[in-house]
Amino acid sequence: MADPASTHALYDLAKDFQPTFAAIIALAAATIAYRGVLARISYDKAVAEAARHTARLSLCTRLKLRARPMGVQARSLSEWLDNEQARLSIAEVEEQMQVWPHPPGEFEEAWQHLDALPVDAIDALDALRDQQSRMAYVLASPAGEKEDWRRLHVRTISSVAKQVALHADALVTALEVEIAAMRKAADRIR
């Protein structure tokens, strides 16, 4: 049989360290909870970053898909005007201009979220918006009565269309580089 004095001494020893044992258990529980909270914060950050990445990729892709046909249409118009300039009447030019590509909503959305675009794309978007405004001004101004003035009007429209095509191409190129980099980064994360 166990000695009652040693059992009593062990009980007294455990009783003396009871607050210490409780503190150790509480500290372990707090450490486990803290690590759980840190893991949740890390997860939430990753989810938020993935959402920002997806939104940025989506904006760049939509912007590229709108800029490319604008550039093609502007280039086509410029070439048509350059080739047919001598024979064109202002009425024919105005008829053709009815299909001039107006800036899509993605341009305004991108302008509101410049932080989502690379610097080259911002510069190209700014220049493209400027040329679109210039084209709107040219189209709103009367061609005039004299034949020389009409030809100048047609040359101005052609020149602005070339600039629109140039800046649309620059925007598409900048966005393609950025989209490729974002997709590569997303593949590394997965």
Rank of each mutant, 00 (worst) to 15 (best):
L175D: 00
A127D: 13
G144S: 03
D123G: 08
K184W: 13
C60D: 07
L38S: 12
A26S: 08
I179V: 14
Q98H: 10
D82F: 01
M135I: 03
M70A: 04
A91G: 08
D169L: 08
T61W: 13
Q73T: 05
V93K: 00
A2V: 05
Q112H: 13
G144Q: 05
A33N: 09
L114P: 09
V99N: 13
Q73W: 08
E94G: 00
A127W: 02
V99R: 13
V160W: 00
A48N: 10
A14L: 11
Q112A: 12
D169S: 12
T31S: 09
V172Y: 03
T156C: 12
K184S: 15
V160I: 06
A30L: 07
A55R: 11
A14I: 04
M135E: 03
S141F: 04
E106F: 07
A116Y: 05
V99G: 11
E95G: 08
D123E: 15
L65S: 14
F17Q: 15
L59I: 02
Q98K: 12
P19Q: 03
V172C: 09
I24R: 15
I32Q: 11
D169C: 06
L77W: 00
M97F: 05
M1V: 13
L10F: 05
T54H: 11
A124R: 00
E95S: 04
T20H: 13
L27E: 02
S58A: 12
V177F: 07
R52V: 09
D123V: 10
A2C: 06
E79N: 12
I157V: 05
P69R: 01
H53S: 10
L117H: 03
A86T: 01
P104W: 09
G105I: 01
A51E: 15
E79I: 02
S89W: 01
S78E: 06
R155C: 07
V154Y: 03
D16E: 15
A5S: 14
A180E: 10
T173C: 05
Q73E: 15
V93M: 02
E108K: 15
I24P: 09
K64Y: 11
M97D: 04
L63H: 01
A5E: 15
A23V: 07
E145F: 02
D130N: 12
G144D: 12
K162S: 15
P104I: 03
R40T: 04
A67E: 02
M70K: 02
I32P: 02
A181V: 06
F21R: 03
A124Q: 01
V37N: 13
A23N: 14
T54W: 05
E145W: 02
E108G: 14
